[in-house]
Nucleic acid binder design. Structure first.
Length: 572
DNA sequence: GCCGTTTTCGGCCCGACTGTTTTCAGTCG
């Protein structure tokens, strides 16, 4: 039983309790627990096995500790099963409809017997909804238009795609505000792997004009709401964008508020309350007196904390760490000395070794590992042993010729079904490092998959496990592996795991980064670039690493080559 | 249901916008 599954049970129970009009704070307790579980870098089932007291975890008290135990023991939660008999579970789906929360869902259920999305559509089409007191023509129209749309708006967008949209919106807004007064906040600024919507903040005292200009963005397909300081629109791409305008004196407070996460803000405001302060998007206030607002730093200082980087604002212990002045000094892109996973035209890349090396040098890198595929990866034009040996000679020649950047001889070696590597030992021995990866048989049992990879790590040439879970965001689930065991095995064998910066991979993710750090396992931040431009994807690898609290000392490619070489086990 | 630098009981973050209402509840972030 994984943390995610337990979290789902708690969320489901919270949904039903809410419709049943339970104590809202009780509902929140379940939601808080679910969120905490999703961010935990350790399986609670393992903690229970070791006899640890779950009530020591934040948001978990005696009661919830017992409920987690029950779920781990039996695979289900009795109160949820009971609740499902009181409230039809389908009602939870209905609260996701626009304009419908628990209260109104309960009313349409009680008064019209609606318990499914389909029934809701019928009722709207037949004009039944607006007959209910408190429900009008607009509510009905909103539901109908929701059903007519492609509903892609409730999809989350990959960070990379969100970035492109964000850049266009910012460009549009620069016609009415200075770049320094515009910031895309929200989960985008926190570098979450996917974003649900974009939150754009503008500092200006021409609030009306900014609002008018914002909704006139040519990609806007629908204006959902528009007030004097806040507007919500949908773009043709389906992306929802919120825009908020505040005065400069409130910009820092609004940035904190709009960057979130919600849970982080709640923790911050609670700290404020304990100090007699009210914190909102306009500032921090002691009675009628403003004590902070212009910068984020001021807001944190008002509650006795140092600045917390956006990537850490998930209420995963950052406030406690900040209080003790023990925030990690998280890694920055300028700390990176080289890229350890890139392809060339020899396999499925576009550019030459020379061009990739020169592009790496231009980025200020000291080294670059060329990691074309091995022969098993046929569709990626994997290199035969003969071609790889030729490439090794070419790299030797280029290293003679080029200065300022060292090209490392490497390969993205397929891990075969039985855990052996797709290159003979004699060839592996000629490489500076071996980046190894699974590219087929993703759906083995967790035990078999884990064994397969650990067997590969047993090979003395194995350096780095590339894209360890092989997930493709929104397309392919992560492989089921025992990540704790993989990490421990890597530590024992002097191997490393990768954080792959390809937009659809981001693998390892933030939680895994944190898990590795806590175990003392260092990671490689790589791009898996297939073109010189893709070397820039390092920023996404960095994003996940920062979210996972990684510091420079946790990252092997923040070392210079001489230092890195001593870490690679073949040289140890 | 959790939690404690006012506390083991009585609190629990804060505000904008909409729709349908004549002053506010519900939803949303």
């Amino acid at each position: 039983m994984h943390n995610d599954e337990i979290a789902q049970i708690f969320d489901q129970l919270a949904d039903l309790l809410e419709i049943d009009e339970a104590n809202p704070f009780r509902v929140r307790a379940y939601r808080d627990a679910a969120r905490m579980l999703r961010g935990l870098s350790e399986e609670v089932s393992d903690m229970l096995e070791r006899g640890e007291d779950l009530a020591d975890l934040p948001t978990i008290g005696k009661d919830l500790a017992g409920k987690i135990q029950e779920i781990v023991d039996t695979g289900r939660l009795q109160v949820l099963e009971d609740m499902k008999r009181t409230v039809p579970p389908g009602l939870a789906e209905l609260t996701k409809l626009p304009g419908f929360g628990p209260k109104r869902v309960k009313r349409v259920y009680d008064e019209l017997g609606i318990r499914t999305v389909e029934a809701m559509r019928k009722a709207a089409e037949q004009g039944e909804l607006q007959k209910l007191p408190g429900f009008g023509a607009k509510t009905e129209a909103k539901i109908l238009s929701y059903f007519q749309s492609d509903r892609s708006s409730d999809m989350r967008t990959r960070l990379f795609d969100a970035e492109k949209i964000a850049e266009r919106i910012v460009r549009h807004l620069t016609a009415i505000a200075k770049p320094a007064d515009i910031c895309v906040a929200g989960s985008y600024r926190r570098q979450r792997e996917t974003v649900g919507d974009l939150d754009v903040l503008v500092a200006s005292n021409r609030t009306r004009e900014v609002m008018d200009h914002f909704v006139a963005f040519d990609e806007v397909s629908k204006v959902d709401s528009k007030g004097s300081t806040r507007a919500t629109v949908h773009l043709r791409s389906g992306m929802q964008v919120d825009c908020r305008v505040v005065e400069k004196a409130s910009f820092g407070a609004a940035l904190v508020y709009f960057t979130g996460s919600k849970a982080h803000n709640i923790s911050l405001r609670k700290r404020g309350v304990a100090r007699g302060l009210k914190i909102n998007e306009y500032g921090a206030f002691k009675g009628a007196k403003t004590v902070a607002g212009r910068t984020e730093k001021e807001i944190y200082a008002a509650v006795g904390l140092p600045f917390v980087p956006p990537e850490l604002r998930e209420d995963r212990g950052e406030i406690e760490a900040a209080e003790k002045r023990r925030l990690p000094k998280i890694i920055e892109i300028s700390d990176i000395r080289g890229d350890l996973h890139v392809h060339t035209r020899a396999s499925d890349g576009r550019d030459t070794i020379r061009d990739m090396a020169l592009a790496a040098k231009k980025r200020g890198y000291a080294y670059l590992a060329i990691t074309d595929h091995t022969k098993h990866a046929r569709i990626a034009h994997g290199l035969t042993v003969k071609r790889l040996e030729k490439q090794i000679d070419e790299i030797d020649r280029l290293n003679e010729e080029l200065s300022g950047v060292r090209i490392l001889k490497s390969s993205e070696v397929d891990i075969l079904a039985d855990g052996s590597l797709d290159l003979p030992d004699a060839t592996l021995a000629k490489l500076d490092l071996a980046v190894c990866a699974v590219h087929f048989d993703f759906d083995l049992s967790p035990a078999k998959q884990t064994e397969r990879i650990i067997r590969a790590m047993d090979h003395p040439a194995f350096s780095i496990l590339a894209h360890p879970t092989c997930r493709l965001i929104g397309e392919r689930d992560p492989m089921r592996v025992n990540m704790e065991r993989l990490m421990d095995a890597a530590l024992e064998r002097g191997c490393f795991l990768e954080v792959n910066g390809q937009p659809e991979r981001l693998d390892l993710n933030d939680i895994h980064c944190r898990m590795a750090k806590e175990r003392g396992l260092k990671l490689a931040l790589s791009t898996d670039a297939h073109t010189i431009e893709q070397l820039g994807l390092m920023r996404f690898s960095i994003g996940q690493a920062r979210r996972g609290w990684l510091e420079r000392s946790d990252v092997i490619n923040a070392l210079n080559w001489r230092e890195l070489k001593t870490l690679l086990k073949r040289c140890g």
